[in-house]
Amino acid sequence: MKPWVWHTTNEDALTIAHVSVDNASPWVRRFVSQIPKTGTVLDLACGGGRHSFLLAEMGYSVLAVDQNISEIEKTANPFIYSKELNLEEEIWPLGGDKFTGIVVTNYLYRPHLDRLPEMLEKHGVLIYETFAQGNEQFGKPSNPNFLLKTGELLGLSQRHGLKVLAYEDIYQGEPKPALVQRLCAVKEG
C-alpha cells in the first residue's frame, strides 16, 4: 500500500465527523459490517467523507480519495488517510492497490468501473449506490453518462464473479426523489 496523507486537526473536527456519520447512506450502514476488518477500505469519490467517518468509527482503516479532499482533511482521524486524485484520468490512479472493501456512492465513471472488482482482495466487499436511468425526471443527475443502465451493477458482478448479497433498482423518496441502483457483492475467489 502506498503512503497516504494524514489529516490535519481542526477545532470543529468532532462536529464534522459526527454530522458526516449521521448522513451516511442507509444502504452503506446496512452492509458495511460485511467488509472484513483485516485490510483497508477504499471510499471512492468520498466527497465530504460521510462514509469514511462511518467506517473509521467502526474500526476500519480507510483510504478516502476524491478530486477535492479539503473537507475530509479538516478532521484528524488515525483510521482515515486521504489522497487527492483525478479519478477520471485515462490512466487509473489506483493501479495495483488492493482493498478489503470498496464503498462508492453517487458516483459513476464507466471507463474505470470494471477496475473496482479487480481491486478487491479475496472476500472483499463492494458496496455501490448511485443514480439510475429514469432519474432525469427528478432532476440532476440527468446526463446518461452518470446514470446506471438497468441491471448494470448486476452485470458488473457477473463479469467479475462476485457473489451478490443484495441488489436494488428502485425509486427512493428520501432524501430527495430519485431512481437508484444499489449493490452489495463479495469477491469469493
Rank of each mutant, 00 (worst) to 15 (best):
L116I: 15
P117E: 05
P117K: 03
P117N: 02
P117S: 02
P117G: 02
E118C: 08
E118N: 09
E118G: 09
M119F: 13
M119S: 15
M119N: 14
M119H: 15
L120V: 14
L120P: 08
L120A: 09
L120D: 09
L120I: 14
E121H: 06
E121G: 08
E121A: 14
K122W: 01
K122M: 13
H123G: 12
H123P: 04
H123D: 15
H123T: 13
H123S: 15
G124P: 00
G124R: 04
G124H: 01
V125T: 14
V125E: 08
L126D: 06
I127M: 02
Y128K: 04
Y128L: 01
Y128C: 03
Y128A: 00
E129S: 03
E129D: 12
E129K: 00
E129R: 06
T130D: 03
F131V: 01
F131T: 05
A132P: 08
Q133W: 09
Q133Y: 06
Q133C: 05
Q133E: 13
G134K: 01
G134H: 06
N135Q: 09
N135I: 05
N135W: 06
N135G: 07
N135A: 04
E136S: 11
E136H: 07
E136D: 13
E136N: 07
Q137L: 13
Q137T: 13
Q137G: 09
G139D: 05
G139E: 04
G139Y: 07
G139W: 08
G139L: 06
K140C: 10
K140H: 12
P141V: 04
P141S: 02
P141G: 00
S142C: 09
N143P: 04
N143H: 07
N143M: 02
N143S: 06
P144N: 06
P144H: 02
N145R: 15
N145V: 04
N145Q: 13
F146K: 11
F146D: 03
F146S: 04
L147N: 11
L147T: 05
L147G: 10
L148M: 04
L148F: 04
K149N: 14
K149M: 13
K149L: 14
T150W: 12
T150K: 15
T150E: 14
T150Q: 13
